[in-house]
Each structure stands twice: as structure tokens, then as C-alpha cells.
Design a protein around this nucleic acid. Structure first.
Lengths: 132, 132
DNA sequence: GGGATGTGCAATCATTTACTTGCGCGTCAC
DNA sequence: GTGACGCGCAAGTAAATGATTGCACATCCC
């Protein structure tokens, strides 16, 4: 049940989305459909090189895709990984929910047992699952 | 249409999930239902204080909740924000999809027009939003 | 060809961030 | 009470990261 941190794809997406400037870039990109690092720079408050580096990270994460036209390199957003990550999060949340429900039941049972010796917590009632 | 970066809640969640150690903590926490910083440290390769700091960030992001029992401070996972962020991502992905579809249509029209003057791109067909 | 425009590479800088160590204090058990 | 256990605060360190500047190279337009 435990140990599904998930690999590189989700990891990279989360890392990429964590930065405000990159989210801003994505937002502008999605707004204009396609753009180059230079045109994006015009509507932002950082240098072109900063935008270029961010775009590289975004492309490595699979959130955008770049292609050459003439002498310019245009980028478009790619929704795929975003959808995947959203699903991953949803599954994780569902897993947490299930786990919480189980714990709640155990806690209520422990509470029942605790009523027999009032004023003191009987914490060791719960096996602590395990660890390793 | 543009400008929905979304505020603090999503921002904090993304930032919190971006770190591998924090995801590991969340995973262990979800596995054991509840745990303290000390018990978590036992199954990880960082110091207790590191875990404490991570838990503070996770709690600020609303991903976990801590409460005192006796002299110990236990934590449980809270799925709420995770679900919200997943939905946010899904909406964003859908928005991207819609935008891509629109651009594709425009591009095809531009391609049609481009057939009349072969060998040269008619790029200025798209208003380019603007650029200061 | 020649100037303008757009790109890519590389080094540098400053801030942030993850992690550590040390210590004082509250809480439980005997 | 005394000792053990767990927690919290604080300062400090080292690495990652966001951002900058400078310059060389390629491409477009006249």
C-alpha cells in the first residue's frame, strides 16, 4: 500500500509548476497559443535568458513543446502531463481518504476501550502498522 | 481569458509537493495514519529538525494537520487541498486544450491563405496579442 | 553583401532552501 | 524529586535555484 511516490514525470511537473514565474509563462503561453522566449519576455519582468531557462525546465517536464520556424523557436503548451499529474493527485487524495477512514474506525474502537480506564490515554492500543 | 494563476492555496501546495523529502513524509504519514516528527525520523535519512521543518511547510500548505496529545505532536494527512489542486490542474489542462483547438483552426486557415504565396510564411496573420 | 533581429552558450551573482547541530524547556514514568 | 523522552527555538552551513550580463552564431530583409 505504501511507497507510491511515483517517478520522474510527476516529479518534474510538480517541480516545474512550483515556480511563480514558470506558471506565469505557462499562462501567457496558453493565452497566446504560441510564443517565443523573446515575445514572452516583452510582457514579463525578467530577462530573456531567464525565460529561456524556464522554458527549458518546462519542456523537460513535458508541459510545453518547442519547435523551430525560421530563426525563431516557438513554444506551445502541452496539456498531457498536466492531466496525468491531476489524476495522480486525485488517486493520492483518494488513498489518503481511505487511510483516514480506517484510522478513524480504529481510533473509535480505542476510545471504546479507553472508557474503561478514564483520565488516561491508552495509546499503545494501536499497533503502529509497522515500519521498515 | 488570461490571468488565472490562482493564489496562495494552490501555490503553497505545489511548492510543498515539489520536494522529494516532503513527498516521502506524506507517503509515510498516509501509510501509518498518524505519526510524530520523531517516529517519522526513525524511518528516514534526515534529522528530526529537518522533518519538523518540512512538516511545518506541509501544515502551512494544508496538506497535514498537527495536534498535541501529551508531550508529543502528532500529524495526520488532510486530503482536501490535494483534491482542490487536482481539480485546478484539470481545469487548467482543459483550458489549454480549448486554446490549442482554437489555435489549430487558425493555423489551418493561415495555411490555406499561405498556399496563395508559396515559399514564405505569413506570420502576421495572428494579432500576437500585443507587446508593449 | 550588410544591418537588424532572434537565438544559444557560458560565466557570474544573489537569494532561497534543505539540512544540520546545540541547547533549554515541558511532560511522562518511576 | 530525578531521569528519560519528546518538543521547540535559534544559529549556522552548504548546495540548489532564479536571474543577470556578455558575446558569438544563425537567419531574415533590403
Amino acid at each position: 500500500m505504501s511507497g507510491n511516490i511515483e517517478g520522474p514525470p510527476v516529479e518534474d511537473v510538480l517541480g516545474a509548476l512550483a515556480d511563480p514565474t514558470r506558471r506565469q509563462i505557462l499562462d501567457r503561453l496558453a493565452g497566446s497559443g504560441e510564443a517565443t522566449a523573446t515575445t514572452l519576455t516583452a510582457e514579463m519582468s525578467v530577462s530573456r535568458q531567464a525565460v529561456v531557462q524556464h522554458l527549458a525546465i518546462l519542456e523537460a517536464a513535458g508541459l510545453v513543446k518547442g519547435y523551430r520556424i525560421g530563426r525563431e523557436r516557438r513554444f506551445i503548451v502541452v496539456p498531457r502531463r498536466l492531466t496525468e499529474t491531476a489524476r495522480w493527485m486525485d488517486r493520492l487524495a483518494a488513498q489518503w481518504d481511505g487511510r483516514l477512514a480506517a484510522i478513524k474506525r480504529i481510533a473509535e474502537q480505542a476510545h471504546q476501550a479507553g472508557l474503561e480506564s478514564p483520565g488516561r490515554q491508552k495509546e499503545n492500543e494501536q499497533p503502529e502498522t509497522d515500519r521498515s
